[in-house]
């Protein structure tokens, strides 16, 4: 499979990465290079094979239901590019 410029645009949009028109062509070429490389997998017969869900055969540990965290709003927003009264601020979202 290979991608065209329109697909690369759509993928960039889904990835929320601005790509200039000039870069689109280069990116399309690079992505097709990688997709061509992974195409090798098409020769593997995987019928009846389960996909891997975990490389280690362990069961998931679970937490007890207790409040052990929180009450540190100042730490939470400490690195924020824009915050006010411990809220994060972002350009207005129109719903």
């Amino acid at each position: 499979m290979s991608v065209d410029i329109a697909t690369v645009k759509r993928v960039a949009r889904l990835s929320r990465i601005a790509v200039s028109e000039d870069d689109l062509e280069r990116m399309t070429g690079e992505l097709n290079g990688i997709l061509g490389f992974v195409e090798l997998l098409s020769e593997v017969d995987v019928s009846g094979v389960d996909p891997m869900t975990s490389v280690t055969p362990i069961t998931m540990r679970k937490r007890a239901d207790a409040v052990t965290d929180g009450d540190k709003a100042a730490d939470i927003v400490a690195n924020a590019p824009n915050s006010d009264q411990n809220f994060f601020l972002v350009p207005k979202v129109v719903e």
Partner: peptide, 8 residues
């Protein structure tokens, strides 16, 4: 209060 019930 805002972001007080928030962990990392």
């Amino acid at each position: 209060a805002p972001n007080s019930n928030v962990s990392l």
